[in-house]
Amino acid sequence: MKARTRLVLAAFGALLRLYPPAFRETFADEMGQVLSRVLSDAESSGHWWRTGARELGGAAGCLVVEHLHLCRKEILMNTSSSTWWGAVGLGLAVVISRLPVDARWQSSLALYLLAGAFAGWSLSQINPRGAHRLIRVMAGVAAFMAGYLVHALRDLSLASSVEVTPILTLALLLGEPLTIAITAAALIGLLDRDGAQIGRLVLNGAVGAVGGSLIGLLVAFAAWGGIQAVDSYRPGFDGALSSWVQVGGHVLIGIIFPGVAGLMAGARLGRTEGRWRQMHAA
């Protein structure tokens, strides 16, 4: 066997180790045998380089496809409607907290309370039992209250005489949704410390939560008059870097962070529900 063939076989073997375990256990031996014969044919036919490249490319492509198939199968098999609704609800809650409100702090507080209750209700959908349900509602409210605290601090900083640089603006804008996301994940994590199949659950949560957040964003802007919200940027927009940073920050907190927050929480929702269902199945 030539050195280049051994090299391709070694690279192929390394790629095989990255395949999902079930696939690897079933097919790895056979695939190795078939590849050896294919490469040996290619040595005699003179198409060795083309064959080698096709085989390695095919193995890499199939690796991705197999993982995607596995994830899709897991999601379809293990996700019930309450997980989806929980994730969508949390996404919507983050969006509600981002709705434009006037300067009166009461309106902001009311909005955050509403979002927190909505998030808590979403969490409670997973395991609708008495005390447990109440704890989850409280967890949702607490996460959003932490977000409100950062929101209030941000307003305070912006109102003071501190010079607002683009970086500071971005940091102030990102602080609030990050706080909500991290607090929500930590609180939900406290309710469920069982750590299994995290990858599946993150993906599980990601699909539902990002989708939910985007839908929520559309609903929220439609309800509040998206045109006014966009118009409010126009008069002061001068094309300077700081203006772009401000608009970019609003896009981030309006779209991306609700998705991330929902993702983290959705992952937890999936995990909690998986454990609950296992318990009941047992």
Binding site: V34, G57, G61
Partner: peptide
């Protein structure tokens, strides 16, 4: 249609 080993076994698994 010329399968690579990876794509063939992916299809067989499906």
């Amino acid at each position: 249609i010329v399968f690579s080993t990876g794509t063939l076994y992916g299809a067989l698994k499906r």
